[in-house]
Amino acid sequence: MIDRPRRASDPPAEALVLCRTLVLVGLMGAGKTSVGKRLATLLGVRFVDSDSEIEAAAGMSIPEIFATLGEPAFRDGERRVIARLLSEAPCVLATGGGAFIEPRTREEIAAQATSVWIRASLDLLWDRVRDRPGRPLLDAPDPRAVLADLDRRRSPVYALADVTVDSRRGASHESMARGIAAAVRRFDAGHPARPPTIGVAEE
């Protein structure tokens, strides 16, 4: 995705209406939370982080859930929380890195929402997560190698998302959010038989 100036034919951001939940997928460090918050503001809807919702439902942090209950229990709870969020009013939903990998979760997202893969290079992902705690999957002697393995195994599944945008070093959250909105509208235009994700408010 390449940033471009806003065209005169583009509707103003305040005229855009989110009709279908946008689910952001991708590896840790891709920018799902930071860009997702800006995208939600752009579209005038709430931003929801599925990990935060899982923590609230479980009364434990993500690392505590992994340590106490294990990853399978976490994934089951994650699927149930995401299913609940998809049944609510359209929003921008940032998901954990493994959520879209689970077939049942992916099926529910496909049926009720539009998925966006925020793709980033391994070097960029590593720069963003290397000094941040609370990443259970990176709790290993060689966390960069773990991240590289996750990137290798998960990218083909992330590529099944409806829309793919590239996160680039130095790109602002604003430009990323506007780029996602534009990419989703192009996706809508190419799938006229599908309910639109982003509409334009009538004057």
Rank of each mutant, 00 (worst) to 15 (best):
A120E: 06
R38Q: 09
E14Q: 03
S155L: 01
G179H: 00
L147C: 03
L160F: 10
T105A: 13
L27D: 01
L147K: 08
G96K: 04
V17P: 09
L69R: 12
P90G: 15
V17N: 01
S115K: 05
A145K: 14
T164I: 04
S155N: 06
R104M: 01
L147A: 15
F187C: 03
D10A: 00
R106Q: 01
R152K: 02
P90D: 04
G59P: 07
I54D: 01
C19Q: 11
V17C: 12
R7T: 13
G70K: 01
E203D: 15
D166G: 03
L124S: 14
A110W: 00
I198P: 01
F74G: 01
V48Y: 06
D76Q: 15
W126K: 11
G179K: 00
A159L: 03
R6G: 05
A182C: 06
D139C: 04
E174V: 13
E71D: 05
A99M: 09
V165K: 06
R38M: 14
M60L: 14
M176D: 08
L85D: 10
A120H: 07
S9Y: 02
G26R: 04
R178A: 12
T164Y: 08
A99T: 10
L18P: 00
S87W: 02
K37S: 08
E55F: 02
G31F: 08
G59H: 10
A161V: 08
A111G: 01
D123C: 12
F187S: 10
I2S: 14
I54V: 15
V48R: 06
E71V: 02
S175V: 14
R84M: 14
T95F: 10
A89K: 15
L18Q: 11
